[in-house]
Amino acid sequence: MTASEVKTAQQRRIDGDTPLVELKDICVSFGGIHAVDHVSVDLHPGEVVGLLGHNGAGKSTLIKVLSGAYQMDSGEIRINGNKAEIHNPRDARSYNVETIYQTLALADNLDAASNLFLGRELITPVGLVDDAAMEAECRKIMGGLNPNFSKFAEPVSALSGGQRQSVAIARAVYFNAKILIMDEPTAALGPQETQMVAELIQKLKAQGIGIFLIDHDVHAVMELCDRASVMKNGQLVGTVNIDEVTDDDLLSMIILGKVPKQAVA
């Protein structure tokens, strides 16, 4: 792959190519509270779109509609231009939507390989779980992702925060994700591990994977994202190109709900 042959995400948008994911007019309410109120966002291949907002702004709820954890009340999800029916996490996985949850969603009592393959175990010809093959695959992928990782036999509760994070990331990346959702992936990490996540995002971008990155941290979004969509009180404040705004512009969108005039994407 050379750069000249591949369109950048920005170029695709300008050309009006079909986005990888379109969330259109999504509404989710919990007992009369509009957690997500007519929100539309989209994502192109090889693009990182940041979702920003206060706690309770609705960004996690919006993204859980895409990952299948929540059901939307109205709206439409399109993947590669086709309407997608996502009613549960299994459906989402069938569209190659993978999610790294803020809570990591690991079963603490199982080892890394069991977590990596949870719900998609490798099985032997007689239908039994093939632990040896899963451990071998797990050693392979962890070798590339986090070379210091060595606790394959222990339950993941015995691992450090960074190691647990790499298990969660490995799980999302291993199964040919096309669309990756990262919910505050660096919240529990030290500087070195945060750097590792940043490098990983660049690598995945280069492979044409579209990434939704949910984060509190404006600096992280400025550094990692191509565009940012800001939410406030369940509504979309606006979507901006990162290279056309400053930190302060983003902050005022988050806090005041104001879109800088020059930067509407």
Binding site: S67, G68, A69, N88, P89, R90, R93, T99, Y101, T103, L104, A105, L106, A107, D108, N109, L110, S114, L118, G119, E121, I123, V129
Partner: peptide, 20 residues
């Protein structure tokens, strides 16, 4: 798989749900 899911659900029901 049945046994693996039983133990996974016992360890973290939410994670089991999110794993489909």
């Amino acid at each position: 798989r049945l046994g693996r899911y039983i133990f996974a659900t016992g360890g973290n029901p939410d994670a089991a749900d999110l794993s489909g």
